[in-house]
Every structure is written in structure tokens, then in C-alpha cells.
Amino acid sequence: MTTNFAVGPNTTELWEHVRPLVEEIEALPFLTQLADGSLDPVAFANYINQDSIYLSGYAKAMSFLAGKTTDRDESRFWSTSAAEAITVEEDMHAQLLSDARLGQALTDLEANDRLGASPTTLGYVSFLVATSATRSYGEGVAGVLPCFWVYAHMGKVLIERAGAMSEDHPYRTWVQTYDSPEFDESTRKAVTILERELERAPEDELTRMRAAFERACVYELHFWASAHAMQTWDAAVFAV
């Protein structure tokens, strides 16, 4: 499935460059199982918990961008997006706790001391905050964009795969809200900002911006996969 949020030649080229990564995300068992309703509730609860941790850091990264830009509209956009990320976090937890199956799964995670950030979540958040805080505005924008773009794209993929979901589909509400016209609009606004920054960037910065965008796409892939694999800090996985 192709979802084209690109608004110009630069973002079109960038999206085509990372398409193999996007296709890897599309092929993850997590998304197939989420769409057909067979996903283990504990794996979903783990994903939601990790996403909640991630969104707090993501909001901080966008707050740095809001303070860096000299464009009032862009500053307002990043500030609003940061606030909405916190709201989404709160709503996700409320939804999780309101469903008996998912609430029990969250309880199981807590009982096993599994509510902290995974290595991948911490790495992704650290990358975004550091890039937004210490690198150029353009690099920061490129770093935060995959969360908008990949998530908006995957929302369309999930809706297409899930089809007409029954009332008892365990993830029906979540899948439906994932494909949001409001989020699509925010994604297009963010991509428009990136297109402008790519157009005006000198060649050396352009290279760094492309690298930041690609690195964040790799983190998107690892984020989905690591949440499904219930990644922990257990060093035993490295044992020979």
C-alpha cells in the first residue's frame, strides 16, 4: 500500500529512500496480529506502555523545535503537537485500564517489573531529544518526522488489513482511531516544514538531515519489533 504524504521533490525522494524500511515495518507479525485481533494482550499492553514513555520524550523533542524556529506558525505547530502527544499518552492509558483484558495485561507487566523503558525506547527518545536540542533546527525536524509519517502511513495499512472488524475485535477501537484525519493533517503540516528545510539547507546539512530521518525510521522499525519481542535489559540475550 502506498500512502503519499510527500509535498515536494525533496520529501518524495526521502520517502522513496526509506521505503525498504517502511516495507519491513509493514511485514512485522505485530501489525498482522494487531489487525486480525490475534495479538497477545500482554504484547499490546507492552507496546502501549513503551509508546507512552516514548511520547513523553517525543513531546520534549518537539518543544525544543518550538523554541528554535523563528517562524511563529511553526513554533505554534510544534508546541501544539507536543501538548497533543501528552494528551494521547493519557488517553492510551485510560483506554488500556478500561478494558479488562488489557488492564490485566498491564497488571501482569507491573507485577514482573516490566513498565520501564526498554533499550530501544530509551535509545530512540535519547536520539530525538539530543538531535532536537543540540543539532540544527532542520536536523531536529528531520528526526521527529518519521513518527508522524510512518505512523500515519501504518494507520492506513492497519485499516486496510483489518477490514470490517467485529464488535468483539479486541483492538477495534484502537485501530479505528489510529487512522485519524486530524493526524493526517498534522503529518502533512510537518512534512511541509521538512520540505522547506530540505530545500534551503546547504549540502552538508542536507546530508545530516537525511541521515537523521533514516536513523529515526530504523528506530521506528526497531520500536515496533522490540515491543512485540518484550525486549528487556537482561544481558543474558548476549550470552554465547
Rank of each mutant, 00 (worst) to 15 (best):
A162H: 05
E203F: 13
V141M: 09
I193P: 00
G155V: 14
L221I: 05
E16Y: 10
I86T: 13
Y219E: 02
F5I: 11
L14N: 05
Y54N: 02
A45H: 00
G140F: 07
P41C: 06
L55V: 03
R101A: 11
G123K: 10
T177S: 14
F30Y: 06
K189Q: 14
Y47P: 06
G116S: 15
H153L: 14
D73H: 07
V191Y: 01
L102Q: 05
P119K: 15
E167P: 01
R101D: 12
A152F: 07
H228Y: 15
L34W: 12
V141F: 13
G37K: 03
D113L: 11
P181C: 04
Q95G: 12
E84W: 04
A216E: 03
N10P: 01
G8A: 01
P202Y: 12
A130I: 10
R172A: 08
S118F: 14
L28T: 05
I53T: 08
I53G: 07
A225P: 00
G143H: 07
W174D: 06
M1H: 14
G116Y: 13
A130V: 11
Y54M: 02
T207C: 03
I53Q: 09
T32W: 07
E199V: 11
H17C: 05
A190I: 15
R101H: 09
R210P: 00
E26L: 06
P181T: 05
Y151P: 05
G123M: 10
T192W: 05
G155D: 11
T177N: 14
T173L: 05
R172W: 04
A43I: 08
L122R: 13
T80E: 14
T107L: 15
F183Q: 00
A212H: 03
I193M: 04
P41W: 07
W15F: 13
R19D: 09
L128C: 00
A227M: 06
P20I: 02
M1T: 13
H93M: 11
T192I: 04
R215Y: 07
F5C: 05
I53M: 12
V240A: 11
A239Q: 05
S118A: 14
N112Q: 15
A130G: 09
L115Y: 12
R208V: 02
S126R: 05
G37I: 06
S56Q: 13
G143Y: 07
A225H: 05
M209G: 00
L65N: 09
E185F: 02
A212P: 03
G67P: 08
S226C: 08
V191W: 02
Y54G: 01
E220I: 10
A216M: 04
V7M: 03
V237P: 01
A100T: 14
Q104F: 04
V150H: 08
T131P: 01
R161I: 02
D113S: 13
G103K: 02
E110H: 15
S52N: 09
T121K: 08
P29D: 10
G138F: 10
E23W: 04
T3M: 14
I53W: 10
A82D: 01
R210W: 03
T134V: 14
D234M: 00
A45C: 00
E182I: 07
E203R: 11
T177I: 09
A111E: 13
L106C: 04
Q104G: 05
E197T: 15
E89A: 09
K60F: 10
S132K: 04
H222I: 12
L102P: 00
D91C: 01
Y171P: 00
S98G: 11
Y58D: 00
M209V: 00
Y54K: 03
F44D: 02
E74K: 01
R101E: 12
Y47D: 07
E24N: 06
Y124K: 03
